[in-house]
C-alpha cells in the first residue's frame, strides 16, 4: 500500500502538468483564432470572432431546434451502434471461433472494412428511404466491420488454458461464452465497440449532410446554406464536445472494473 502511495504522488503532479499544457494549447488556439479573425486576412464572415461564435453558441443552445435534431441524431447513432455492434459481435464470434469461417470470410472483412461506406448511401436510400432508416443503415454498416474484426481478434488471443479450465469444469456453451470468452476478451471488445461507435457517428452525420430533413448533420448543412457561420461553428463545437464526452465515457468503461 505504501508503495502505491509513493507511486501516485508523482503521477498526480504529472497529471497537473498535462492539464496546464492542455489549457495553454486551447487558450493559444483561441487567441490565434481571434487574431486571425481581426487581421482581415480572411473574410470575417468565414472566420467569425470569438464573441460572434459565443453568441452563436448561446443562440443554438437556447433554441428547441437544436435539441429536437440532437435527439433524432442520437437516436440514429444509438440504433446504428446497437444493430452494427450486435451483428458485428455475432460475426466476430463466429470468425474467431471457427478456423473454417476465418479461412472462408475474414479476408473480405479486411477488404470491406476500410472501404468508405458512403458509396453505399444511394443504395441505402433506395432500400430504407430518405428518413432515419437510411442513416441508421449507414451507421450500422460502418459500425459492423471494426466490431467484427476486434471481436474475432480478441477471441483468438484468449489463452487456450483458460478455455481448458472452463471445459474441465464442464461449463456449458452459454457459461463458456459469458464466464470465459467474453470476460477474457473484454478489453479488445470494448475497444472495438468504441471504434464502432465512432464510425457509426461519422456514418450517420455524413449521411445526414448528404440527404435529409432532420438531424445535426442536416443542421450543419442548413447553416452553411444560410451562410450562418457563427451558427455553424457553434454546431461543430457542440458536436465535437458531445463526441469527446461519449468517447471518454466509453474509455472509462473499457478500463473500469479490473485493476491491473
Amino acid at each position: 500500500m505504501a508503495a502505491t502511495g509513493t507511486l501516485t504522488i508523482p503521477q498526480k503532479s504529472k497529471m497537473d502538468a498535462v492539464l496546464v499544457l492542455r489549457i495553454a494549447i486551447i487558450a493559444s488556439l483561441l487567441v490565434f483564432w481571434q487574431l486571425l479573425s481581426m487581421s482581415g486576412l480572411l473574410y470575417e464572415d468565414v472566420v467569425p470572432g470569438l464573441p460572434q461564435i459565443t453568441a452563436g453558441l448561446y443562440r443554438l443552445l437556447t433554441t428547441t431546434e437544436f435539441y429536437v435534431n440532437l435527439k433524432v441524431t442520437a437516436g440514429e447513432i444509438l440504433a446504428a451502434s446497437l444493430i452494427g455492434g450486435l451483428t458485428g459481435m455475432i460475426a466476430g464470434l463466429s470468425l474467431g471461433g471457427s478456423y473454417f469461417m476465418e479461412r472462408a470470410f475474414e479476408r473480405y472483412f479486411y477488404y470491406l472494412g476500410p472501404t468508405p461506406k458512403i458509396i453505399f448511401f444511394p443504395l441505402m436510400i433506395m432500400w430504407f428511404g430518405v428518413g432515419s432508416g437510411s442513416k441508421v443503415a449507414m451507421g450500422a454498416v460502418s459500425c459492423f466491420f471494426p466490431v467484427a474484426l476486434a471481436v474475432a481478434a480478441g477471441m483468438r488471443r484468449i489463452p487456450p488454458i483458460l478455455i481448458r479450465v472452463g471445459e474441465s469444469f464442464r461449463a456449458n456453451r452459454w457459461q463458456m461464452l459469458t464466464k470465459v470468452h467474453l470476460p477474457a476478451m473484454r478489453e479488445p471488445v470494448v475497444n472495438g465497440f468504441r471504434l464502432g461507435f465512432g464510425v457509426a457517428l461519422i456514418g450517420v452525420l455524413l449521411a445526414e449532410t448528404k440527404l435529409s430533413n432532420q438531424g445535426l448533420g442536416f443542421l450543419v448543412i442548413q447553416n452553411y446554406q444560410r451562410f450562418d457561420m457563427p451558427g455553424m461553428y457553434a454546431l461543430l463545437i457542440a458536436i465535437f464536445v458531445i463526441a469527446v464526452a461519449v468517447n471518454a465515457a466509453l474509455g472509462r468503461l473499457s478500463r473500469g472494473g479490473r485493476r491491473r
Binding site: I161, L162, R164, V165, E167, S168, F169, R170, V180, P183, A184, R186, G257, R258
Partner: peptide, 19 residues
C-alpha cells in the same frame, strides 16, 4: 469428454485474471 467426477489442476498458470 470431461467426466463429472474429475477435477483438474493444470501445469500452466490457469487463474482467471479478471476474477
Amino acid at each position: 469428454g470431461p467426466h463429472k467426477s474429475i477435477g483438474m489442476v493444470f501445469q500452466e498458470d490457469a487463474t482467471f485474471p479478471w476474477r
